[in-house]
Design a protein around this nucleic acid. Structure first.
Lengths: 193, 193
DNA sequence: CGGCCGACCGATCGATCGATCGGTTTTGTC
DNA sequence: GACAAAACCGATCGATCGATCGGTCGGCCG
């Protein structure tokens, strides 16, 4: 389910890499740190992945695939009205960036560290998420429920707002995830109204 | 003046470092690349800066100081009404992230690469910018012109919106800087209305 | 039991890293 | 034009980088 964040769902090696990448960044992380975090020797790590770049690519691909499936799932079981559908997508995005904070953070900040075609593949997945938001906004305009003169910029702003959550949210912070979601859902609504 | 982006204003060495950092990131950049970009030998580069970390810190400090002075300047010669003052700050932020795109991008993304107290000093400057936005929002609430129930979150959202511009804007893109500014000023207004 | 394969490791590779050395050239001042 | 200071450089340092090597181990299949 798109609201379920209990199960692991990530290769233990990638889960370990995620923690180190989140703390030090891709280029700031050494193969030896990745191996140690995974509880393996350097050679043992290379048995599972061909290179450091391979680890990053497998990680962000796994994370973005998870996000895409959740966004699609959030739309599938949504009430048919545009207001609900827009809220579902935004709520899904907020939940993901709250509950998979480090994964979402690494995926969004290490775009620059992806080499060659890997970067384009990532951007394509990123664009699909943003397109899902824009689709709901345009549908809302057609239905007369939204009135933003700039649906494309509004969609990017909503996405930026949600992605940004992963940059500042702290689990022990002032507000609960539910409250953060409520407030930013309201901010997103104002962007498209 | 806070709208003037003609003059250089940056140490040539830092200007060269800016280009390389923007393209490859701090940890992805070598001292030799920095020296080559500055037209110096490695030893010649070390005559001006004590370390690679020193170069990054001098760069982001210079950039953030510039931004802070512009924000203050934008408020100083503003009409006294809250609507104008809010618009001034947001316009100043948007211009900075449009016309100093690479500098703003590096300053915002390489926060993680700052070591020790340098990071805290940067965060303090960053918070001062966001506080300037929040101050205008609160003033607008007091004056009855704004109505957002979450001024703190709205201020962060406005800042995120402006900073994000540096991540996607391309000078040869579809819209002119003036048009980008106009549209995002409208989005910012909706966030606080 | 014998053979094999995936999982894993210690040791080490060549390359490159950030940084430093002693020494040379350029520049500004009187 | 003497001279000190600033600017700059070739050569090289020890450390560490990503990656690879030959080999060990344990469990599964016949």
């Amino acid at each position: 389910m798109w609201r379920d964040y209990d199960k692991a769902g990530l290769d233990p090696i990638l889960e370990a890499a995620l923690q180190v990448f989140a703390a030090k960044g891709y280029h700031g992380t050494t193969i030896r740190e990745l191996a140690a975090a995974a509880g393996l020797s350097v050679a043992g790590l290379y048995h599972h992945y061909a290179s450091k770049q391979d680890i990053l690519f497998a990680l962000v691909t796994s994370v973005m695939t998870d996000l895409l499936e959740r966004v699609e799932g959030a739309l599938e079981d949504s009430p048919p009205d545009v207001g609900s559908r827009f809220a579902r997508v935004v709520e899904c995005m907020l939940h993901f960036h709250l509950f998979q904070r480090e994964a979402a953070f690494v995926a969004s900040t290490e775009l620059r560290s992806l080499e060659g075609s890997h970067r384009q593949e990532y951007v394509a997945m990123r664009d699909r998420v943003q397109a899902a938001i824009e689709t709901q906004i345009v549908a809302g305009l057609d239905a007369g429920e939204f009135s933003t003169p700039f649906p494309h910029e509004a969609a990017r702003a909503v996405a930026t707002l949600c992605v940004g959550v992963a940059s500042w949210y702290q689990p022990d912070g002032e507000h609960s995830p539910a409250e953060v979601t409520r407030r930013h859902l309201e901010l997103a609504r104002r962007l498209v109204m």
